[in-house]
Design a protein around this nucleic acid. Structure first.
Lengths: 154, 154
DNA sequence: CGTGAAATTTTTTGGAT
DNA sequence: ATCCAAAAAATTTCACG
């Protein structure tokens, strides 16, 4: 998971282009990088095989599809060893979009979308607090996502 | 930002396909949905114009490009009115990938990647704590991202 | 690894229902 | 809004340097 060395500056240029627009034609990337389309094709294949690229996605505006509430939630566990089981339960809640094992304030930390504050309350009360192993939670509601972007390539 | 009504079930099917693979040929989406490629093309164009789709991206494995530390940070502000200025300063730090205006424990909440814990410490000490307006921060380090996924379409 | 070329497939546009 | 069809462009593969 740590190797970084087999990525050269052409790879970085490719990555920085395709991370900002997954639909950009590889031929356009090729022209910009002054190599053939086949070279780009081949390198992207290699980056996928190496696990550098995990996939691609269209980015949706959550509120446009009815998700008006975004929250982060810190979770306290009864026992740290319950982590794996709790992850499995959280995975069954589709509104939970991100789940981390953390150190600091909380044992776990999740990001969650809900249709409304009322819906969030229901998810919290009906689903999260019924998961055995969770002792308590703290909710941080996002009133506004100021920005969200890709991590810098190099 | 709130309208949801002009999205029908075909749009949802399209969205759920392209959010999981941004490079899927629209013709393949068309075949799966049993409509013409032109219809998919046109609907995706419409979804972009409506702002439902904000863009697309390749997903990178952070550790494969040298980012071994992921953290969340809660920020306390000296005055809530300083929010806009602080956002501008945070935007200048490329390692900060997400920034929220929050209610709950903190006034602001960010997600941040760093090459190492040492690098995170440097960002925190040299950059974040020099931003006027920030009174203090609390760091939550992610030891493991258990999962990360798209929000459910419908 | 890179290239160029060939075959296949997709994207994109315009006119018709 | 959808379709069909045609033109343009991109993807994919492969033999070769």
């Amino acid at each position: 998971m740590e190797s970084n060395l087999q990525i050269d500056s052409l790879d970085k240029k490719i990555l920085s282009m395709i991370t900002h627009n997954a639909r950009i034609p590889f031929l356009e990337v090729a022209r910009e990088c002054k190599v053939s389309g086949a070279a780009i094709h081949q390198r992207i294949q290699r980056l996928m095989n190496m696990g550098v690229i995990k996939g691609s996605e269209f980015i949706i505006n959550p509120s446009k599809i009815g998700y008006h509430t975004c929250a982060f939630m810190g979770i306290f566990l009864k026992k740290a060893s319950l982590f794996d089981k709790v992850v499995k339960m959280l995975e069954e809640i589709p509104e939970v979009v991100e789940c981390h094992y953390t150190t600091g304030e909380y044992a776990m930390f999740i990001k969650i979308f809900a249709k409304s504050n009322e819906h969030l309350k229901r998810i919290l009360h009906d689903r999260l607090q019924n998961i055995p192993g969770i002792s308590s939670t703290e909710t941080i509601i996002s009133l506004d996502e100021s920005f969200k972007r890709q991590l810098p390539i190099e």
